[in-house]
Design a protein around this nucleic acid. Structure first.
Lengths: 271, 271
DNA sequence: GAGGCCGTTTGATCCCGATCAATTGCCGGC
DNA sequence: GCCGGCAATTGATCGGGATCAAACGGCCTC
């Protein structure tokens, strides 16, 4: 049962934070405002947030946002592009744990300790908002509301991850892939992108690793879904042709509509 | 790929809260104090906690603590016995999501909504501490410290569940069962019980369901581990004979020492 | 445009765990 | 003690996905 993770050993390519000269310094003006947790706090708190928040220069593809074991310096929200989070197993294999789209907060699971339990890397050129950890903790101390928002986000992510846990390892390959596609579609739709035609920013290896399958199985499954006229695939481009049938495929192994499964519920992540 | 969940349709047996005449009304005096989140808050907050906390009469085996979809009325900590949490899939199958031992908080994932996302039922005669949800939220509003403790608990549970997610569905049966046994052993040890000889309070169906396997495979795997003189099994009683080898088995499929995997880190759950 | 690299697809075979089926063992009632 | 019922074990077979292997195709360099 070895070789699941067709290994990808990781090189680190660390860089300092470079602030962008971005003039758009208010959250309220951000295109993602309605998706961001910043929407849920009071004006005064948002003023504070606007003061401490840093918008980094775009990250290049494959550039890391943080490394496992590294000290937690900032709380990070994706602004554009996409991000992959992963862990490293003892053998040094990469294990993909989630994909993050604009508006989602990265690394909530690092809150407990002072260090990141995993890694985060840009899948394409991406931008982020960074809130220095100390500032964020100070805000937490002062604002019960912000606390509640964070508790809520974490609790949601918790319920979601648990749900994912219930199905991964119990579902067959076709179901996993169908759920994955629907999840991406739904999350993109939320960001006003075409839910029926989109580009997967991660490669097959990442998808396979994330779903607990092999590259070959993912590829075969995509081909099969295409053969059945449910989707059309060409490289990273995916078109959903028969959404209803795709949804049926997603319900095979275990019940559960895709409304919750593998799907962000508010401004949180995974998936 | 159907039939994973050798179904157990669930009957609800709801009862009102009955307070026990228990004189032990202070958390500080509780045998579980060192395991409980109550240890981490200030004296004043604990006074408040002592005021609002209710200790229920023992729950009978198979008695439910809460039902999915039911309104969140209390925050519950296990005092004695053991509890199983589960979800119900669309087909009506039970899906076991965790086991809870004394000192662990049940249903943290319900925090986001006002209702429980899943079910919780006593595996044997058990006692709990119940904090009315309103009181708890009031305390949260007033105490940044309590907020931090909860955020930390949730964040830990998050990291843990994510870790579990990474391995379940990627590990072979032997590894899953080994991890499960080591997890139970470790958690019991933390509660001053013999880590090398203990009783599994859940039946094979629950174990199989939790691990994403079938009853037969769990049974076969236990038999195999016994044949290899790693453990001794007799019904629900398990004895760990060769812990080192068992730990080796647990590392097969994917790296990761069992220190984090499937193991409660503080006063939280899963398992 | 030729060649090479790498990600992806497709094919053939194997193995683990699911499935189906039968047996054993445990416990409670009478 | 005997019997009925359910949990657990053990056996035989099947199938989905991993594994090994090869071919394909896009993209970059020269």
């Amino acid at each position: 049962m070895r070789g699941y993770y067709q290994d990808r050993k990781v090189m680190s390519k660390r860089k300092g934070l470079r602030e962008t000269g971005d003039n758009e310094t208010r959250c309220e003006d951000c295109a993602l405002f309605s998706l961001c947790f910043a929407q849920e706090i009071s004006c005064e708190e948002r003023d504070e947030l606007n003061r401490v928040l840093k918008r980094r220069q775009p990250l290049a593809k494959n550039e890391h946002i943080f490394h496992g074991g590294q000290q937690l310096k900032t709380v990070t929200v994706v602004r554009s592009g996409s991000v992959k989070s992963y862990q490293i197993s003892q053998e040094g294999d990469e294990i993909v744990s989630g994909f993050y789209l604009p508006g989602e907060i990265i690394g909530l699971d690092g809150f407990s300790g002072e260090t990141h339990p995993g890694f985060a890397v840009a899948l394409e050129e991406s931008r982020t908002c960074d809130i220095p950890f100390r500032d964020f903790m100070r805000m937490l101390d002062r604002s019960p509301k912000l606390n509640q928002v964070m508790l809520k986000l974490l609790s949601e992510e918790m319920a979601e991850t648990r749900e994912l846990l219930l199905v991964v390892g119990r579902l067959d390959a076709r179901t996993r892939v169908a759920l994955f596609l629907l999840s991406m579609s739904r999350r993109l739709a939320r960001r006003n992108q075409d839910p029926n035609q989109f580009r997967l920013t991660m490669d097959r290896r990442d998808i396979a690793n994330y779903l607990g399958l092999t590259i070959e199985t993912v590829s075969r499954t995509l081909s099969a879904l295409q053969r059945d006229d449910i989707i059309a695939v060409r490289g990273k481009m995916v078109q959903i042709i028969d959404r209803r049938t795709l949804q049926e495929q997603a319900q095979q192994g275990v019940g559960g509509d895709d409304s919750a499964m593998l799907t962000s519920r508010s401004a949180n992540q995974s998936g």
